[in-house]
Design a protein around this nucleic acid. Structure first.
Lengths: 152, 152
DNA sequence: CTTGACCCTGACATTGATGTCAGGGGTTAC
DNA sequence: GTAACCCCTGACATCAATGTCAGGGTCAAG
């Protein structure tokens, strides 16, 4: 199967499949004309890589445990590298969530401080707000916009 | 005050202060020798910019409402632009949190599927798991590591 | 006059998967 | 033979704040 077929079957772009090969996640034999040749096993692998990436793993991380991914769903994390990588990623995600939660609380405080809105429910994690919402007038900053490149 | 003084007083780097000026968030007069000259007002503004950035605003976003930031903490979001920007950011953060939560649940499922660990409590948001943890053997991916640049 | 501590501008690097373009070739059907 | 697809490699762009380097001034103290 050529690369276009893999792309079609996996949902990955041709560009991405080439990228996965370049970083060593997949391997392809070559036809006489230089075209990559894949089989059904590669399709499954590319699908799995896509799932991993959507979970937040980088290709570099995936590479560290790709060689111990096994066919039996029951032994998923049986290989310690896989389990370790998953636990690390889990911890990283929870750190990110905590950071986002902090920022969320500060935004809520700022919003609540000004407008007497009551639809901002602010559930768990009570905050002790030394956040000092907004202040400071600075008269000369009117024309600040549009110094930025726009996406072409 | 010269740029080094601003940096020292705000915690921002000299590089960052120059950057804020370049994108129009602050303005500096120039001494005869070309050196930037700042006053105490600029120090307060740079501190505020730093806080905004830590909240997750980009300088481009900050620029859209910087000119309506006022000195009175009670009127924080009195300027509609500020409130709108904060609500947008809040919504974006909540989307990110939801995405992270989804990924977290999938990671937990995968981990739970293999090791009979019980310290993974999995609290709220029950998941309907069509996640298909891990599978697929691929014998020829042993030498995948170290194709990546290392940071020097 | 030299040293050291500042300041200046401009430019490149970082992160990482992916899009996209340039320039070139293969394969197939008409 | 030519149009229409597909493939190849290599390279640049994306996002955004910040670090860092090169190459060059300014200025005060010794």
């Amino acid at each position: 199967m050529k690369i276009g077929g893999v792309a079609k079957r996996t949902g990955a772009s041709v560009r991405s499949v080439r990228h996965y090969e370049k970083v060593g996640l997949i391997r392809a034999t070559r036809d006489e004309n230089g075209y990559r040749d894949f089989d059904e096993t590669d399709v499954l692998l590319v699908r799995r890589i896509g799932r991993m990436i959507r979970l937040g793993f980088t290709t570099e991380e995936i590479a560290t445990f790709l060689n111990c991914i096994v066919d039996d769903p029951a032994t998923v994390t049986a290989c310690p590298k896989v389990a370790a990588a998953h636990r690390l990623k889990l911890a990283a995600i929870e750190r990110q969530m905590a950071d986002l939660e902090t920022r969320r609380q500060k935004l809520l405080i700022t919003l609540k401080a000004a407008s007497g809105q009551d639809d901002t429910s602010v559930p768990e994690t009570p905050v002790h707000a030394e956040t000092s919402p907004i202040s400071l007038a600075h008269p000369h900053n009117a024309g600040a916009r549009r110094l930025f490149r726009r996406r072409g």
